Computed example of a mutant assay.
Amino acid sequence: MAKLTVKDVELKGKKVLVRVDFNVPVKDGVITNDNRINAALPTIKYILENGGRAILFSHLGRVKEEADKAGKSLAPVAKALGEKLGKDVVFTGTTRGAELEEAINALADGEILLVENTRFEDIDGKKESKNDPELGKYWASLGDGIFVNDAFGTAHRAHASNVGISANVEKAVAGFLLENEIAYIQEAVEAPERPFVAILGGSKVSDKIGVIENLLTKADKVIVGGGMAYTFFKAQGYEIGNSLVEDDKLDLAKALLEKANGKLILPVDSKEANAFADYTEVKDTEDQNVDPGFLGLDAGPKTIAEFGKELAGAKTVVWNGPVGVFENPDFQAGTIGVMDAIVAQPGVKSIIGGGDSAAAAINLGYAEKFSWISTGGGASMELLEGKALPGLTALTDK
């Protein structure tokens, strides 16, 4: 990695500013999934154990007006983090001002403070989300010249709490999570052990155009599943019934198929139902055609077998997007089949690009079987697309 990391800076006695991603689901003040907190622990512990005074920044949800603040405070996160660390986490419930400054200045070596939700600054002019120069400079002034970015989930956005702080400190460095995300995803795409197979699912071709185009130049095969497969089917002249389709992307789908030179692998059948919800009939199609009055909601058994063959022998696999409506047990066989095929390959480097794919792996009990599960859906998508991430670009070069 061409950027400085947290191991490259002296931490002892320093007020160290840290951008983490604590954008966790909270219901009635209770955190329902703490994976992102756990992912930040190695960097936080390293800073504290090396005598740093950690000052953490994170957003939680979207906040556009005063009413949006309800249920968006990071107070429950401060409590949960303290329990995981076994020490008090100072929390003033403020994003700026004398109370926050005094609390920061009172920190001793090895102590930690969490700043209130950075998006609270968006209520008056989107200062956080639009990278307000004054806000980035102010937050940077709270530390001693060191900023650690460990929030991969927001690295594709230029916000005051990442790019803004980076521009106003002596050294902006990567935390362990950000370093690992880049190592696994970017290096898997740019320098993969081959054969390299990419699997792309999800509902819309339009969401993955850039990713498909980039991976067709990098991967040995690109497997396409999920709802966006039906746009490709219609472009080829198949009947798709009531399946999801982007009619304005049919020409694009044809162009991608031509450009792919046989590297784009599509499903060969579907599991179809006569409604998305409250359906009364579910069956497998004979081929790519979906029956009138039905819609494809998962990969069929022939496709699951075919995808397994295409994955045989793969040494690097990047997967982004489920291949069916995995939340429904009736339509999760395709996603499970893909996961089974990936983890069955000897010595495979298997990477999930966040989002719904990560949720599928975690919820269906496959998380421990993959080499890496990204914490950032949007950021991982932009890496797969070959784009530069502002939050990463802003860090100090080695």
Rank of each mutant, 00 (worst) to 15 (best):
K283E: 10
I146L: 08
K27D: 11
K271I: 15
G201V: 00
L74F: 06
K204N: 02
H156D: 02
G355E: 06
E102Y: 00
G226V: 05
N289R: 00
W319P: 11
N274P: 12
A183Y: 14
P390M: 12
G226P: 08
A394P: 04
K45G: 03
N180S: 15
T316S: 12
F196S: 05
P42F: 01
L364R: 07
F196T: 08
A344G: 05
G143V: 04
A80S: 14
G386F: 01
S73R: 03
A70M: 03
K7P: 06
Q186W: 00
K130N: 15
G300H: 11
L4A: 14
N261R: 10
E246I: 02
L311A: 09
A344H: 08
K263R: 14
I44T: 05
G202D: 01
A140G: 14
G97F: 09
L60N: 13
A198V: 14
N242L: 13
P329G: 12
K14C: 03
L74S: 11
A394V: 10
D284N: 15
G354F: 05
E65A: 14
E382K: 15
D251L: 00
K127N: 06
N274L: 04
A140D: 11
F294N: 02
K87D: 03
V30P: 07
A70Y: 02
E281F: 08
E368L: 07
V148C: 03
P25S: 11
P292I: 08
A359N: 15
D248H: 01
G391R: 12
G145L: 02
A360Y: 09
N261F: 02
E258N: 13
E170C: 04
A39T: 12
V16E: 05
V282W: 07
V205C: 01
I44S: 05
K249M: 13
A198F: 01
V77A: 12
D122T: 14
D144H: 04
G82F: 11
L216C: 12
F196E: 02
E10V: 14
G241P: 07
L264M: 15
G201R: 02
L100W: 07
S374M: 06
D397I: 08
K218S: 08
R36S: 09
L295N: 04
K126V: 05
K349W: 05
K309F: 03
V173T: 10
A103N: 06
A158C: 10
A98G: 01
V224H: 03
G51Q: 07
K84M: 10
F57N: 09
A273L: 06
V197G: 03
D330E: 15
A75S: 14
L178A: 07
T393G: 04
E66Q: 13
L392K: 13
K127E: 09
R62F: 01
L85Q: 08
G97E: 07
T316G: 08
G202T: 00
E306I: 00
S129H: 01
F294G: 08
G237C: 07
I199F: 07
T94I: 00
R53C: 03
L257S: 07
A358K: 15
L11E: 09
S206D: 04
A277D: 13
G293R: 02
G313D: 06
E368R: 14
S206H: 11
Y279L: 10
G29Y: 02
L41R: 10
V290C: 01
N33L: 02
E128D: 14
P76R: 02
F120S: 11
D356W: 03
S380W: 01
I352G: 13
